[in-house]
Amino acid sequence: MNARPLAREAALPDQGELERSLRHPRALFSFVMSWLTGLVTVLTLVPLFSVLWLLVVRGGSSLSLAVLSELPPAALMPGGGFGNAIVGTILMVAIATAISVPMGILAAVFLADFAPDGRTAIAVRFAAKVLTGLPSILAGVFAYGLVVATTGTFSAPAGGVALSVLMLPIVLLTAEEAIRAVPARMREAAIGMGATPTQVVLRILLPTALPGILTGVMLAIARAAGETAPLLFTALFSEYWMSDTSPEFLPKAPGDLMHPTASRAVLIYNFSSSPFDNQIELAWAAALVLVVLVLAVNLCGQALARRRA
């Protein structure tokens, strides 16, 4: 490794040796591996397109307005739909959003701006990551113990609580990241003008970070809309509308909420093992609607994130 001057007279290496040729085992190995990874990547995309293709073919053929607005059919009955499941899903996701979004965003403000390096913030971040990894069915067990066992009935609010446990960490962690990404000079300018920390948050940080926060909210909604397992423990399923009086699909009194509530995801699960063709076709149609919705929300969220970047 001494600084020995390069021998001028050393012959230039053979040009042919430097050329990349597949006759060298090293180059051949690299070439083969490159193609192999490419092939594997394509292979992993096959399931995605297989799922989408099948949903369009099988779900699309039975999709109609009646399917979206009628009640689930009994065994051997023709027709029917999953209108009550759509209402139930929207209701429960709305409850979950109302709980998790304000809580997640305000906690994120604390983590990102008020005390980013404090011991509380570190503990909260760890707790949120633990919640991310919580199996969804255990969120259902938790809500079952907290709400169902206390109120004595399976209900939409219980389902909402279970879903909010799953949404909270997604909202919290993405909102924190979005708030942190706001340029420091904007914050400092506001402080320099005499704004209180609260004013800085409400007037500067949250409006600027809004696209990023919305991305997180949308991802969380997409996740919650597709969840099944926690609802088995909390909302169960129902063959009926939420209310007895017309229009039946709107809950009229608080009491109307406290019944088992239908959701699309549970309907797919129940009907997928059904021996009756009509119910299986409905499961496919419900899956198509569910996936279209989830992918649309997901892509919107990602588009928002890209515009910000």
Binding site: M103, L106, A107, V109, F110, L111, F114, A115, T120, A121, A123, V124, A127, A128, V130, L131, L134, L138, A139, V141, F142, G145, L146, V165, L168, L172, T196, P197, T198, Q199, V201
Partner: peptide, 27 residues
């Protein structure tokens, strides 16, 4: 208002930790 808002965010941050504890305790 600033004090109140900051206490609210602190409480909500703590409630995330509390939620994990509550889930463990409940199950």
């Amino acid at each position: 208002a600033d004090r109140a808002f900051r206490s609210v965010t602190l409480a909500l941050a703590w409630s995330v930790i509390l939620l994990v504890v509550l889930i463990l305790g409940e199950i």
